[in-house]
Simulated assay, not measured.
Amino acid sequence: MRFLSERHLWEGGATFLVGLALWWFTGDVDVPVVTPTKVGVALMCFGGAQTAWGVYRSARRPA
């Protein structure tokens, strides 16, 4: 990857997709400490924020 903003875009997109998969497919899984669906939602929020940061940095990059 040439620029740090590309890295943020890829990592944010991958994190969002992992969170989406957790949210969709772990609705009936019982874990004693945390609910996997809530972890999925948190990962989707973090991935979306990281992707938005990558978009912002790529827009602010000097040409």
Results as ranks from 00 to 15, higher is better:
Met1Glu: 11
Arg2Ala: 08
Arg2Lys: 14
Phe3Arg: 15
Phe3Asp: 15
Phe3Trp: 13
Phe3Gly: 13
Leu4Tyr: 13
Leu4Lys: 13
Leu4Gly: 13
Ser5Arg: 07
Ser5Phe: 14
Ser5Met: 07
Glu6Thr: 11
Glu6Tyr: 15
Arg7Thr: 14
His8Cys: 12
Glu11Met: 13
Gly12Gln: 00
Gly12Glu: 00
Gly13Lys: 10
Gly13Ile: 11
Gly13Met: 12
Gly13Val: 11
Ala14Phe: 14
Ala14Glu: 06
Ala14Val: 14
Thr15Arg: 05
Thr15Trp: 11
Phe16Trp: 12
Leu17Met: 12
Leu17Ile: 09
Gly19Leu: 00
Gly19Arg: 01
Ala21Gln: 03
Ala21Ile: 06
Ala21Tyr: 04
Ala21Thr: 07
Ala21Val: 09
Leu22Phe: 08
Leu22Thr: 00
Leu22Met: 10
Trp23Ile: 02
Trp23Met: 12
Trp24Ser: 04
Trp24Val: 11
Phe25Ile: 03
Phe25Met: 01
Thr26Tyr: 01
Gly27Met: 05
Gly27Cys: 02
Gly27Gln: 12
Asp28Asn: 06
Val29Cys: 06
Val29Phe: 07
Val29Ile: 11
Asp30Cys: 06
Val31Glu: 08
Val31Lys: 02
Val31Gln: 07
Val31Ser: 03
Pro32Ile: 01
Pro32His: 01
Val33Thr: 04
Val34His: 06
Val34Gly: 01
Thr35Asp: 14
Thr35Arg: 15
Thr35Ile: 04
Thr35Ser: 14
Pro36Gly: 00
Pro36Asp: 03
Pro36Arg: 04
Pro36Ala: 00
Thr37Ala: 08
Thr37Tyr: 01
Lys38Gly: 06
Lys38Trp: 13
Val39Ser: 01
Val39Gly: 02
Val39Leu: 09
Val39Ile: 13
Val39Lys: 00
Gly40Cys: 05
Val41Met: 08
Val41Arg: 08
Ala42Asn: 03
Ala42Val: 02
Leu43Cys: 06
Leu43Asn: 03
Leu43Arg: 03
Leu43Tyr: 04
Leu43Ile: 00
Leu43Val: 02
Leu43Pro: 03
Met44Asp: 02
Cys45Leu: 15
Cys45Tyr: 10
Cys45Arg: 10
Phe46Glu: 07
Phe46Trp: 14
Phe46Gln: 12
Phe46Thr: 08
Phe46Ser: 14
Gly48Cys: 05
Gly48Ser: 12
Gly48Thr: 07
Ala49Thr: 04
Ala49Cys: 08
Ala49Pro: 01
Ala49His: 03
Gln50Ala: 11
Gln50Trp: 12
Thr51Lys: 06
Thr51Ser: 15
Ala52Cys: 12
Ala52Gln: 09
Trp53Asp: 13
Trp53Leu: 15
Gly54Ala: 05
Val55Tyr: 04
Tyr56Val: 14
Arg57Gly: 10
Arg57Tyr: 11
Ser58Thr: 11
Ala59Asp: 12
Arg60Cys: 10
Arg60Val: 07
Arg61Asp: 08
Arg61Pro: 02
Arg61Gly: 06
Arg61Gln: 13
Arg61Ile: 04
Pro62Asn: 12
Pro62Gln: 15
Ala63Leu: 10
Ala63Asp: 13
